Computed example of a mutant assay.
Amino acid sequence: MKNSHVYISVVHYPAVNKNGKWIVTSFTTLDFHDIARPARTYELGGYYIVQPLEAQQFVISEQIKYWTEGFGSKFNPKRSAAGSLVKLVSSITEMIEDIKNNTGKYPKLIATSAKKYPQTISYKDLREKIEKKDDIYLILMGTGWGMPEELVKSCDYVLEPILGPGDWNHLSVRNASAIILDRLFSINRGL
């Protein structure tokens, strides 16, 4: 796979609520395919779901099994191929360690945010870094009202915000991930 050195993740913890308090967000079944499919289309190394709650882990595990081993794998092999990229982990630390164990390198962490930070990077500049294939990259997608500022500031880079023509900015994680992957990896991005 061309971009097997790049991973994407949906982070359910830590997340923040509208008051800035740390929370755990719930997994939605739409996130499974609506992020796995673009991850497979753009040939990423994998898609991690970070979810510490056991009840939520059970639901996610059952969905992974259904699409990779169960009836879903035979009913729709394309969805099965996308589902095979999905990995469930309990924490960001576990995810980073898993990537390091599989690649031999710690990934460069790429946060996403609706705000700019000192380490904000343009899509063009990140695309150029990724194309060199010198490093492993992990894109962290926040849920709820985003990731805690402490987490975002600890990342190597923060992708520039996705902005529309006005000041309203509240995309779903599924929409944002598809836009981000297209901007980074599409061969017909028209840039």
Results as ranks from 00 to 15, higher is better:
153 K>A: 12
67 W>P: 00
46 G>M: 06
9 S>P: 01
56 Q>T: 07
68 T>E: 01
17 N>C: 02
178 A>F: 02
179 I>T: 00
64 I>S: 07
77 P>E: 10
140 L>K: 06
87 K>E: 15
147 M>P: 01
172 S>R: 13
73 S>C: 13
87 K>V: 10
130 I>V: 15
21 K>D: 14
132 K>G: 10
37 R>Y: 07
92 I>V: 11
10 V>D: 07
149 E>D: 08
151 L>A: 01
67 W>Y: 12
7 Y>A: 01
122 S>V: 05
119 Q>G: 03
167 D>C: 11
170 H>M: 04
102 N>C: 08
33 H>S: 13
135 D>M: 04
60 I>K: 01
4 S>E: 03
112 T>I: 09
19 N>S: 09
114 A>K: 03
88 L>F: 10
114 A>W: 10
116 K>H: 11
84 S>H: 07
10 V>I: 13
165 P>V: 07
104 G>W: 11
91 S>R: 06
67 W>M: 03
161 P>V: 05
147 M>N: 02
138 L>Y: 04
4 S>M: 00
174 R>Y: 05
152 V>S: 11
30 L>A: 11
89 V>A: 00
35 I>F: 02
64 I>K: 05
79 R>I: 07
165 P>L: 13
120 T>Y: 04
148 P>V: 12
128 E>C: 09
56 Q>E: 15
157 Y>E: 08
71 F>L: 13
168 W>C: 10
172 S>V: 07
175 N>H: 14
175 N>C: 14
60 I>M: 08
181 L>N: 00
135 D>P: 05
161 P>D: 05
130 I>L: 15
78 K>F: 15
166 G>P: 05
167 D>A: 15
101 N>P: 00
5 H>G: 02
8 I>W: 01
141 M>C: 14
47 Y>P: 01
82 A>Y: 01
61 S>F: 04
169 N>L: 08
173 V>A: 08
